[in-house]
Design a binder for these strands. Structure first.
Lengths: 190, 190
DNA sequence: ACACGAGTAGACCGATTTGTCTACCATGAC
DNA sequence: GTCATGGTAGACAAATCGGTCTACTCGTGT
């Protein structure tokens, strides 16, 4: 991949993540990145294609980071704790590779492109599906009964999304820790 | 309140809720509502003031609806079930007064105005606080130990926000029912 | 030697943005 | 009768939007 292309994606991500997609103009991205307009339109067919590339980029970064954090923990309840400890680090800006927390990019973009059939919204749904798959494989390392795996996965996903929303909308920096305690209580009772 | 003012707020709400704030121009609101531009700027100092009024309007509608649904249920676990049954009705467009589901307006607006200090974002945080207060009073009607009231409230809020996010981003129409089962399991173990 | 792809700088286009302004009308209070 | 208020219709302004285009430079592969 061209270095200019990557630089555009990285710059666009930072701006979109902070201010939202509609609030950031093409020209702002160009000035910030120091790239010529023609170059942008050489790599991307338009703004929407750039946003899509940003979503793919962020999905890769985020999933790689989360997967590493989950794999580093011992199987079982420790992995459940690792999930929410990772979120806690994210919310409190202790993860350099994820940049300063401004909520979940995919939730934010879904808010701006509310139609479920929109390509950008669908990309966001795909990301959430990928994360759910990571969580499901986490659940399978616990002693939870096979019949409850789907339910436990759903529950952890609900708590995860809830924590992200609480952290972003309310500014609750302890949201991940609250979710962790709830998750522990829940998993023990399954 | 002037009828024109209310009509503007109502029209603006529908457009903002469907398409997002930045994606809807003042002119579109004027055409849709059939109100003159001068009248809009007579009632509101600018677009931001209109958005703020829309948030207040939606907060009143939503909280009044939820409060009614919760009060109609018997104390205890029935109220917990009522909370998520209400959400289920909302997600599946069975509540006319809330209009077709497009996620939570306050989460969506927070996504577009990511800065926590922004007046619009703060209004969103206030709404979430109001809903949390309703949920806390719900929790107090259960047999949960007084020392756990805060924890139970947090847990239900997490599940509620998670369900809204799952329903909107993933298009999961059963999100509220999943959250209900999780909540029941959780409350029983407290 | 030369062609070509990637890149720069920036003028330019039409459309759209928020917001202001003039001119006019209807109604009710005093 | 008169005057303020709330309203309509719409021209207008200044800025910005996404996107196209020309003219030019630089480095690499053949």
């Amino acid at each position: 991949m061209s270095s200019k292309r990557l630089h555009l994606i990285s710059t666009a991500f930072n701006l979109f993540y902070q201010k939202g997609v509609h609030a950031v103009g093409i020209n702002e991205i160009l000035v910030e990145s120091g790239v010529a307009k023609k170059t942008l339109y050489h790599h991307f067919s338009g703004k929407e294609a750039l946003v899509l590339a940003v979503l793919v980029y962020r999905d890769e970064c985020f999933c790689a980071w989360l997967k590493e954090r989950l794999e580093a923990a011992n199987p079982g309840m420790a992995k459940v704790e690792a999930l929410f400890d990772a979120l806690d680090d994210w919310f409190n800006n202790r993860v350099d590779t994820l940049f300063a927390f401004h909520g979940c990019l995919f939730i934010n973009v879904s808010a701006e492109f509310g139609d479920l059939t929109h390509p950008l919204h669908q990309q966001c749904a795909m990301h959430k599906q990928s994360v759910a798959a990571l969580i499901e494989s986490l659940v399978k390392t616990t002693s939870i009964d096979a019949a409850c795996i789907n339910m436990a996965t759903d529950a952890l996903c609900l708590l995860k999304e809830g924590a992200i929303t609480l952290a972003h909308v309310q500014g609750d920096r302890k949201a991940a820790l609250k979710a962790k305690e709830t998750a522990k209580l829940l998993i023990r009772s399954m």
